[in-house]
């Protein structure tokens, strides 16, 4: 097998991991599988695209590529604003839809269905605004650097990998070392009990949405930078994200990242050994195997 599989798999895996962390957090704290999560990813990417082209129109210098990378300062600046916008969108959807259903004590399945409706609406509106034609952050070509052993990666790829690693460590520290992290874990253990001992459950829910949306937005921008932007980019990631979240164990951040990498590597290996047309089946096969063999996931705890 070509060692390049390792790089390709890690790149896709880092992206899946970031998305899956958002899925696993909303799942463990809001207690439903949010099918609209992947649309936050699409929204974040397109928001960054719109903002960075607006910045570029203001000052062409911002589009000038920064040293080894293919993009100018417009993209990181636009990315920061896009993260905020994606967070706002998540809070707005929660206020309009999920919050009301939660308030009414709707069943899990009604929430899942509502997330489906929300996903459909968001995706179609993005498609309406930006058309289904693929878009790109930059037209610059990049030369892949040799990394030894016949492996190559572009500077953009290495940057994304480093950024993903920093984010995962950051989220892990936030959950394990800070007060809000402790509250989040408490709510995911037992929402009613956490409320009784004085945890502000509504604040925890807001933080979860913001955190999940921010990670989704960054994953979306990374995917747009390394591949391309399409209105269906998030939808196509849905199965790998869920597979990674369940494989990692619902609620486990390190598990989601590890499982994301596993799914990414398995896909890259499949492309190499079986054929590129079967790549999208990998996530499904992994999902079925986890549900058969270890439904609680790699790092999750067994529960009812």
């Amino acid at each position: 097998m070509n060692p390049q599989v390792l790089i390709d798999g890690l790149m896709a895996g880092a992206l899946y991991g970031l998305g899956a962390i958002g899925v696993t957090l909303t799942y463990s704290i809001l207690r439903f599988a949010n099918f609209a999560h992947s649309e936050l990813l699409t929204f974040g990417a397109y928001a960054a695209l719109a903002l960075s082209s607006a910045l570029g129109a203001l000052s062409a210098g911002l589009l000038e590529p920064i040293a080894p990378f293919s993009f100018g300062w417009a993209l990181p600046l636009a990315g920061l604003v896009a993260v905020a916008l994606t967070g706002l969108l998540a809070l707005a959807v929660d206020a309009i839809l999920f919050g009301r259903l939660r308030h009414r004590r709707s069943s899990i399945i009604v929430m899942v269905m509502a997330s489906f409706g929300a996903a459909l609406t968001l995706r179609s509106l993005i498609e309406f605004a930006f058309t289904s034609k693929p878009a790109y952050f930059t037209r610059e070509l990049q030369i892949a650097l040799p990394l030894g052993q016949g492996m190559r990666a572009t500077p953009d790829q290495l940057l994304s990998l480093a950024l993903a690693a920093i984010l995962v460590i950051g989220v892990h520290l936030l959950l394990t070392r800070t007060a809000i992290g402790r509250s989040m874990r408490a709510v995911s253990e037992n929402q009613a009990l956490a409320g009784v001992v004085g945890v502000d459950v509504r604040r925890v829910i807001r933080v979860v949405w913001l955190l999940g949306a921010a990670l989704a937005c960054i994953a979306g921008i990374m995917s747009g930078l390394l591949v391309q932007l399409r209105p269906y980019m998030g939808f196509d990631l849905l199965l790998p994200l869920f597979a990674a979240a369940i494989l990692g164990g619902i609620g486990s951040v390190p598990g989601a990242m590890l499982a994301g990498l596993i799914v990414g590597l398995a896909e890259a290996a499949t492309v190499q050994l079986v054929g590129a047309e079967w790549r999208t089946a990998v996530a499904f096969v992994i999902l079925v195997l986890v549900l058969l063999l270890r439904p609680q996931g790699l790092l999750g705890r067994a529960q009812a």
Partner: peptide, 17 residues
């Protein structure tokens, strides 16, 4: 046509609410 699909999404959410 994408607006048509958005309409289905809104309809699902609106009926649920």
């Amino acid at each position: 046509a994408s607006l048509q699909i958005a309409l289905i999404g809104v309809a699902i959410c609106a009926v649920l609410l």
